[in-house]
Design a protein around this nucleic acid. Structure first.
Lengths: 143, 143
DNA sequence: AACAAATCTGTAATCATTATAAATCAATTA
DNA sequence: TAATTGATTTATAATGATTACAGATTTGTT
């Protein structure tokens, strides 16, 4: 897993994205916390280190990273856009009780769908919702 | 497939939703056009028959239907909420060229995911994006 | 140091959705 | 039929995330 600032710089250079402190920090934020943050969460996290940071910069940077294929957009819920630096194919589960988002692996069989054999598939998203084990046991304890 | 207004009335009664002309028409619109319409598309389609219709009513009705489990929300794209009356488990493919949304069947294997064995899964959405066969052939012809 | 190009910032504008309150409608009773 | 009650619909205003934009700042180059 790539994590150091130097490696992130390389990743940007490969994709012809100019380097800036803000861009590196947004990338670092996504890399360190694989928590699928929202724009607000990224902004709040970085604002401590970069008091002058503008939310517009966070939006702009994320658009650049998404367009370059380094980051994917997650829209499990209406009005809750999140960002994920893990481009490997995987599913997202959102707990409707605590709001936490979990990654899970998905079967390659899903990809080989006869019906779509004549389609060019560029992007795949699998979103589940429900209750996570932690919240399930809390609910049971309070009974 | 249920389609007549009478059958839609029954469906509403079963779920303890009071019947109104607007509610029936929204339901009918979703039933006749399995095109996963947006709020605007529903509003525009019904406005011809119901000139007094308010967009707020469309929003309110859809919320009631979704809460009752008769309709599901589709959020393939940010800022493009669509509604689907087909509650059977299936995937959605959106063509990035023509914007059309296609249904496709998904494998039951997807559901039996070991990692999520301790999770309570209440909702599953599979969203693909790419280019549909029609747009692919257009692109090839124009080469 | 000066210049040009890119990036960042802050504010204003946009647009879908939600909140709210008054108007309308439907059903019931007198 | 008229009055009453409750639910639904409507129109408008408010909200909030995102985008547009223009000026300020930074960076790299000569």
């Amino acid at each position: 897993m790539k994590s150091s600032l130097e490696e992130l710089e390389k990743e940007l250079k490969i994709r012809n994205i100019n380097i800036s402190y803000q861009r590196l920090k947004v990338l670092e934020c996504l890399t360190l916390n694989h928590c699928h943050p929202t724009v607000d969460q990224i902004f709040t996290a970085l604002h401590k280190d970069i008091p002058t940071l503008s939310k517009t910069t966070v939006y702009n940077t994320l658009r650049i990273l998404v367009d370059a294929g380094m980051v994917r957009v997650i829209t499990i819920e209406e009005h809750e856009t999140r960002y994920d630096i893990d481009m490997e194919n995987h599913g997202h589960f959102k707990c409707e009780s605590c709001g936490m988002i979990y990654d899970f692996s998905i079967d390659i069989d899903l990809l080989t769908c006869d019906e779509l054999s004549n389609f060019e598939v560029n992007d795949q998203n699998v979103y589940f919702k429900g209750i996570c084990p932690g919240c399930l046991s809390n609910i049971n304890q309070n009974k």
